[in-house]
């Protein structure tokens, strides 16, 4: 029973990072209808920034989050201005190939700079114990920050002027032009925010996972699965979908023989099942 509670708790804690990664991906997809296959790699960049800030200057990983957000925001804006913006009206095959190209580029730059060795932030890890459940303090903090960011983003998107403008742009680009919205500017902002979220997610995971050039790719796949399951425009659904993925991975890791391996396949299974059951796609992602 203790084991079961522990496993459940681990799953819940993991989902905190998934939420932040997915929100960034969903933001760009919702507004520009582009799936950024390099999103995971932006996460990876954030993780490396936090890692090196800690190793070189001893900066606390949670303070580095601001830096992660800033730097990756700039990378995102550059990427958008130099490339993504040019192919907004191109066939989707071009959009896929372009963002996938960035994913390959970032991954290999990381490989060249830091090789494939997984790096761990070696800090004193404080364990927290509640009853029979035990977990690292960092994992709890990461979860709390993850959920907090989800709620803040939800607030920004639904209540502030910038959020409402983004919403308008995503609904009808032409009409947004007509009412005087600077559409290219808001696309850039949206892409930048999405990248900043990826950077923050990266900073968070560097404290609880190994940092390697491939860490982003694995998280990216999970974010695709959560996005498929949750659909767009509903933060609560994203929270629930992240929990479903986090928990199922956690249970499979523990209760299935060779579980940690099979757990990697859960994302794919989710994508396949959702698409099989709801062929028209989930809410907000219809086939047309």
């Amino acid at each position: 029973m203790t084991n079961f509670l522990q496993t459940t708790f681990n799953g819940i804690l993991t989902s905190g990072v998934y939420i932040v990664v997915t929100l960034g991906l969903a933001l760009v997809f919702g507004i520009m209808r582009i799936i950024n296959f390099a999103h995971g790699e932006l996460v990876m960049i954030g993780a490396y920034i936090t890692y090196w800030m800690f190793i070189l200057f001893g900066v606390n990983p949670y303070i580095s989050l601001i830096l992660d957000a800033g730097i990756v925001f700039l990378i995102g804006v550059l990427m958008h201005k130099l490339a993504i913006e040019k192919i907004l009206d191109a066939p989707s095959i071009d959009q896929v190939l372009l963002t996938f190209g960035f994913s390959v580029l970032f991954q290999n730059i990381a490989l060249i700079l830091w090789t494939a060795n997984p790096l761990a932030l070696s800090r004193e890890t404080v364990s927290v114990k509640i009853g029979n459940i035990q977990f690292g303090k960092d994992r709890l903090i990461v979860f709390i920050i993850g959920v907090a960011i989800a709620l803040i983003l939800n607030f920004i998107l639904s209540k502030t002027k910038i959020g409402k403008t983004l919403n308008a742009v995503s609904q009808n680009r032409t009409a947004s032009y007509l009412v005087g919205i600077n559409v290219p500017l808001f696309y850039t902002i949206a892409f930048g925010i999405s990248a900043a979220l990826a950077g923050i997610a990266g900073g968070l995971i560097s404290t609880v996972m190994y940092t390697s050039p491939y860490v982003g790719a694995r998280l990216g796949l999970r974010a695709f699965a959560i996005l498929t399951l949750a659909g767009l425009g509903n933060i609560n659904m994203t929270l629930i979908a992240s929990l479903i993925l986090g928990l199922s991975e956690s249970y499979i890791s523990v209760y299935v023989p060779q579980g940690p391996g099979w757990a990697e396949g859960v994302s794919f299974l989710i994508i396949l099942i959702v698409l099989a059951v709801r062929p028209s796609g989930l809410k907000g992602m219809r086939a047309e």
Partner: peptide, 22 residues
């Protein structure tokens, strides 16, 4: 393939990565 757009790309990528793990 019933769906237009990026689902197919996502699914194929995910499929290959899953087979790699298995």
């Amino acid at each position: 393939l019933r769906l237009k757009g990026i689902y197919f790309s996502i699914a194929t990528l995910s499929f290959a990565e899953t087979l790699l793990v298995i």
